[in-house]
Amino acid sequence: MPSTLIITNDFPPRTGGIQSFVHGLAMRRPADSVVVYCSTPGPKWGDATAFDVRQPFPVVRESTSVLLPTPGVLRRAQNIARLEGCDSVLFGAAAPLGLFTPGLRRAGVERVVGLTHGHETGWSALPAARQTLRHIAEQVDVLTYLGDYTRQRLARAIGPAAAARMQRLAPGVDTERFHPDAGGAEIRERHGLGGRPVVVCVSRLVPRKGQDTLVRAWPRVLAEVPGAVLLIVGDGPYRGRLRAMAERQGVADSVVFTGSVPAEELPAHFAAGDVFAMPCRTRNGGLDVEGLGIVYLEASATGLPVVAGASGGAPDAVADGETGLVVGGDWPGPTARALIRLLGDPVAAAEMGERGRAWVRSAWTWEAASQRLEGLLTGS
């Protein structure tokens, strides 16, 4: 059977939305029709070898932490494609590895699909990077996009011919894994949260995600909802500054930092909350932007109302006013008002969560994403 070679820097056990997206697509391909070529994450992400042997397909890793478009990496990708009989390639992120497309075609690859996320929209704003992105788009058969925002940004950068071949491919959500009874009570007990109102944020701790906006909004939330707890799940370079900010705001005793948690515990951490919030914002003049925000959909699948920032494609993951609320993430006021509204009316918040789960189950399924990818890889 012809195989698909997935070439990616974004793959577990390193965690993140792109990693989950690419892995989810790989897992839903026939096991004997996929081989993954990827980088090796650092030890903080866990044992990559142990992860790889559990997969139903072969995983070939470079010893480096990042695959770059170098001749050596291309030669290895070509060798894998020849040895495995790969007739198609899926780039986990089109830029910059999509530059390998001509070389892979020389190795017998007939069909090439490049995924895009949020960072490619940043590339589209920089002249040199925009030229590289345009070159990649002209070489691949299909460049995918997550939603209307990313399509519009990319289409302006890559030119009309390549833009005409763009196709939407967004991730799905495993609603059997993310559901309201996923073990939230255990997480609440672990952190001593009891029955207190909990706002949960699950994400990397970086400025774009807006955890600082949550911390700055928290005094106002506590004034209206005494006893509320902000549960910040994840780790990243912003952690120290966020802790210091919570101390300065005088809310450190009601802000819980869990640090990194195992992937298998993520559903339980979502389920520990009453409201999910990540007021992301666009930074650096549009270079740092949210592509979609799979965490909003995972929260909805768990039955939580969501508060999302109005950055890039993030609003595509929220039915504003139905499954959650979209706010500007640059200032704490809008976030505080949204949280107070949801925490202050648990019945209405629960109804939002129910609508969110129903929406995810109907519109954001892995089955639909897998079928879509099959069509893109075969050209049908």
Rank of each mutant, 00 (worst) to 15 (best):
V73H: 12
E84G: 03
P71R: 11
E62G: 09
A94N: 02
H119K: 12
A77K: 08
A162N: 01
A164S: 14
Q167S: 13
V109W: 06
A128R: 09
L146R: 11
D87C: 05
D148E: 15
R130A: 12
R177S: 06
P102W: 03
G122S: 10
E110F: 00
V53C: 05
G103N: 08
G98N: 02
N79H: 12
G122Y: 11
V53I: 14
H119M: 12
T64G: 03
A50V: 10
P171E: 03
A94R: 07
T121N: 05
G92V: 05
G118P: 10
E138N: 10
R165H: 12
A107K: 10
R82T: 10
E189H: 07
I80Y: 03
T132R: 13
P180T: 11
T49L: 15
P171A: 08
A155F: 04
R134G: 15
A129M: 13
G92Q: 07
P160K: 12
L67Y: 08
T49I: 06
E176I: 01
E138M: 06
E62N: 10
A129E: 12
P69V: 11
D47L: 06
W123Y: 15
L104W: 14
G183T: 08
D87P: 00
L143K: 00
R106D: 04
T121F: 05
S88E: 07
A48Y: 06
Y145P: 09
Q139F: 02
A125H: 11
F100K: 07
G46Q: 08
Q139T: 07
P96S: 10
F51A: 06
V60S: 08
G72R: 15
L68S: 07
L126Y: 15
L115F: 06
P171Q: 06
L83I: 00
Y149R: 11
A50Q: 13
E120F: 13
A125S: 08
T150I: 10
S63Q: 12
F51Y: 15
R151G: 04
S65D: 09
D87K: 14
